[in-house]
């Protein structure tokens, strides 16, 4: 069954490449947002099956965005996977304590993302 993915990342190139890669590999629908605020809005209206969330973003960072998503009833059930650079994986425990579903380390090959997501979420 086709899934709907929302990626929130301030880098447009990353949005584009991830969108292309996931579509290419599985045909899943990929929505994009360039900031935390925009991402929350999209999540509320579109109700994606999973949110891929960049940790380091200007203004509203990934952690703040995640907390905001958790505080809204429309979005609190949506699983969130954080995207983070290897250097920051030391914070992995902290991320897990937050209650995110998983962490994917950058850089990644977008073609492999569906497989990684499926494994994390037991799809």
């Amino acid at each position: 069954m086709g899934k709907r993915i929302l990626i929130i990342d301030d880098e447009e190139t990353i949005q584009t490449v991830v969108q292309f890669g996931i579509r290419m590999a599985t045909g899943w629908e990929v929505l994009t947002a360039g900031s935390g605020e925009q991402g929350i809005q999209t999540a509320q209206t579109e109700k994606p099956d999973v949110i891929l969330l960049d940790v380091m973003m200007p203004e509203m960072d990934g952690i703040a965005t995640f907390k905001a998503l958790q505080s809204h009833t429309e979005t609190e059930q949506i699983p969130v996977i954080l995207l983070t650079a290897k250097a920051q994986t030391a914070d992995k425990c902290q991320f897990n304590d937050l209650g995110v579903s998983g962490v994917i380390t950058k850089p990644f090959n977008s073609l492999n993302l569906p497989e990684q997501i499926s494994r994390i979420l037991h799809w």
Partner: peptide, 28 residues
């Protein structure tokens, strides 16, 4: 620092490992 971080992320998605490492070092 933000620019270096962004660059690292962008270059990484193209698989340019050396350039990514350079950007990460700058960020550091």
């Amino acid at each position: 620092q933000r620019i270096a971080h962004t660059l690292a992320g962008t270059l990484g998605i193209f698989g340019l490992s050396k350039a990514t490492h350079l950007a990460r070092q700058l960020e550091h």
